[in-house]
Computed example of a mutant assay.
Amino acid sequence: MPQDKPLKILLVDDEPLARTRLRELLGDIAIQFASEVVGEAGNGLAALDFLRDHPVDVVLADIRMPGMDGIELAGHLGACEKPPAVIFTTAYDNYAVQAFDLNAVDYLLKPVRTQRLLTALQKVAVAPHPDSAVLAGIGQAVRGGGRTHLSCHERGRLLLVPVAEVLYFKADLKYVTARTAEREYLLDEALTHLESEYADRFMRLHRAVLVARSALAGFEKAAGDDVDAYGWALLRGVPDKLPVSRRQWAPAKAALTG
């Protein structure tokens, strides 16, 4: 990114004092590196909401935040057509910092120092944006669980799908459909990856279907001439029936009664 005009920056941190300090540091290096803070957010969800209408060049994001952390935020941004550069601010130990560094994610250790901030911003022009799949894997290891939201690109907009509201995932060709009680979303995800990431929440019913354990309401055997399924899973809150393979019939029934 050439410095023919100030870089637009979004500060994302749940601590107002941390955001204030970053503002002050950016002011201190204004002569060496021109920038403009165009907004602030207290977590990843608020940041994505801001970015829908306010494009920026750089996001300075804390890692540990309630609602949506910085790693998940960066993953959603990485899936965008023109993502901003992401620089993490973190108090993590050296092992985690090295992992981010190896995956081309720049970072600033708290308390952030002036020269280190300047160096990070100077890398923005040449540093590649982190891969969203890599970030999802790192995030799962760091936070001990999967993402809280999934990305859906619809009519040029980024929509977020809360995983807690998903009743099932169904694979069809290159896309996966996520079904909530209200509607369906098309995701650019792999069913096998979702199964691994959310093993505690979802279980496989069929080679093309994962269901939320909490959504199961019952089962019925398929007709003898039904080639699509050995049986069908009934769900809470929606009329949909999901196919269950012969292999998954017993485990699925056990999950409901257990």
Rank of each mutant, 00 (worst) to 15 (best):
K170M: 11
G137V: 10
S214V: 10
D172C: 08
H153I: 07
E165Q: 15
Y198R: 04
L117V: 05
A222N: 10
A222H: 09
T180H: 09
A222G: 13
K123Q: 15
S196E: 13
K170F: 07
A215D: 06
C152A: 15
A208F: 07
K221W: 06
R183K: 14
R143W: 02
R116K: 15
H193L: 11
K110T: 06
L109V: 10
A141I: 07
T180S: 12
L109C: 14
V142Q: 08
L191C: 10
L167T: 09
G139N: 10
Y198P: 03
E184F: 05
D225F: 10
G146T: 05
L186T: 13
D200W: 02
L102Q: 14
L108T: 02
Y175H: 11
S196D: 13
Y168R: 01
G224F: 11
H149V: 05
V112H: 01
L109T: 11
C152I: 00
R179N: 05
L102V: 11
K123D: 06
A120R: 11
R207Y: 06
D228A: 05
Q140D: 02
V211Y: 03
A199S: 12
L150H: 01
L173N: 11
D188G: 12
L159H: 04
A104N: 14
S196I: 11
G218E: 09
D131M: 01
P128F: 14
A217E: 07
D172V: 06
D225S: 14
